[in-house]
Simulated assay, not measured.
Amino acid sequence: MLNSKEKSSIRIIHTADNHIGKKFSGRYYSPSHQERLIQERFEALERVVESGNERQAHFLVVSGDLFESLHVKVSDINATVAILNKFKGEAILVLPGNHDFYESSSDGLWGRFISKLSDDKIVVLKNYEPLECEIEGNKVVFYPAPCRSKHSSTHTIDWIIAAEKDTDAINIGIAHGNVEGRGFPGDKYFNMTCEELASANMDLWLLGHIHVPYPLKAQTANPGFFYAATHTPDGFDCRHGGCSWYIEINKEKAIYMEQVNTGQLRFHTLSFTLNNHTDIDSFIHTMEQLNPKGSLVKLSLSGRMSQDDIVYLREVIHKLEKEIFYLEIDNRVDLNIDEAYINTYYCSGTLPFQLLHKLSANTQNGLALQLANQLIEQLKK
């Protein structure tokens, strides 16, 4: 393993699946939620750039899906170019992915993107041809495999497999799509196999598409290929906090890797069974561990509690609703109707009193007891 920032090494910050222009539309998010989620994608991209600058990276590599689609707003393109221009290294290499696949029209996404570039520091890897660079005495050759469509049952790395390689150079493949066994199931996302990647004789591959990192964390051995993951989470199916890879590789092909956290929002799906005051306090303790202003939470509550505890829980929920950025609650906590409750809220000898006592005598009548109490309460109104 290299020591971090060894002078003779090539230094790369690797990101992918940024999906700039994602709208987060739908019934779930309010306009203020949408605005924050949209803005986070730009801010997280800035953190990627800052991470690269802090580590004096030579290259920033985007392995596909920098943009959500071919139809993002011009203002989003301008903002993205402005952020990328803050990178202080040698070059920014941007591969078209399946969401932002390459098409050559001048008024399309990539035509507009390229028209905003002031120099050749940002390179759109639109062709199936090697890109050679020399950094600090090291020859580096990048082999890009851009997507030309949103879906494909075949990958685009055949030309890389067939190309002659300079074994004295550092050879790096850049592609977007599934690696079988690592990505999404199905055959329409440019599927590759580990054997095909290995047969290309790359010193490493920088991949995009699956939104989760590979390897899951830094290790000493070269994994052969890296998935950067999305730079900030984008939904409740995303369990990580958003990350990129910082990678060093030297002439001897030894590597150093570091996983860089770049997201500030987290999505949480949480479930609690609450039956008493102690359970509520434990629930509060867990929720206090979250970053309230950076958390989107789907919360499922179940259980049965006393009337006093239900009032307490309502107060807790009201406080959480004011503090947490986004909170969606499925509250199925029922009133625990036991002898103490019946004796307190119903007059002895009345029909409701007798009915509920009769039902409560059998523990298997829990649902019937709840329904009977609800019916009685409705008839009171």
Rank of each mutant, 00 (worst) to 15 (best):
S8R: 04
V297H: 03
H58E: 04
I210M: 11
D76Y: 12
D120N: 08
S75M: 14
D338H: 02
K7A: 14
I10T: 02
V81C: 00
S75K: 14
G366V: 10
V81M: 00
K298F: 10
D107W: 06
I12R: 05
Q364C: 12
Y214C: 08
S75A: 15
T278F: 10
I249P: 08
H211M: 12
T154K: 04
E6T: 03
H14M: 11
V62P: 02
H357K: 06
S348H: 15
T156A: 03
Y214W: 13
K126D: 10
R239E: 09
I324R: 08
W110S: 05
T80Q: 06
Q364Y: 14
Y102F: 11
R332W: 00
G21H: 01
F283Y: 03
F142I: 00
D100N: 05
F113L: 06
E252I: 07
A254Y: 08
L2D: 09
T154D: 04
S63G: 13
Y143N: 07
D120W: 07
E252N: 10
G263F: 10
M1G: 15
I12S: 09
D158N: 11
G224P: 07
I210W: 13
I83M: 00
G303Y: 05
S360M: 11
V140H: 00
M287K: 03
I342A: 07
H71I: 15
T230M: 13
I255T: 05
Q378K: 13
K188M: 01
E164I: 06
S149N: 13
K380Y: 07
N275V: 06
Y326M: 07
I161S: 12
E288N: 10
V48S: 14
T278E: 12
K23Y: 04
D308V: 14
K298M: 09
G241I: 01
E377L: 08
N18C: 12
N373S: 03
R11V: 03
L70N: 12
E132P: 01
S149T: 15
Q264S: 14
A361C: 05
G303R: 04
L204W: 05
L301K: 05
W245T: 14
E323H: 09
I77V: 11
T167D: 13
A91C: 03
E328L: 08
S105Y: 04
V297Y: 03
I157N: 00
K251D: 03
R27C: 02
S282A: 15
D308L: 13
N362K: 09
I280V: 03
L204C: 11
P223F: 12
I77C: 05
G303T: 07
S106M: 05
Y214F: 14
N191D: 07
A79H: 13
F113H: 01
E321W: 06
L70S: 11
K217R: 15
L320Q: 06
I114T: 09
L369P: 08
G303L: 08
K73V: 09
D17L: 11
L320H: 04
I170G: 00
V74E: 15
S63Y: 11
E134N: 06
E258D: 14
G89V: 08
P213L: 08
D237L: 12
T156D: 08
F142N: 00
W245I: 14
A228Q: 11
L125S: 02
I329A: 08
L70K: 11
A361V: 02
V141R: 00
S152A: 09
V49C: 11
Q289Y: 01
N98H: 12
D100E: 06
P213A: 07
D187Y: 01
H209G: 10
L335R: 07
I122S: 02
I342K: 04
T262A: 09
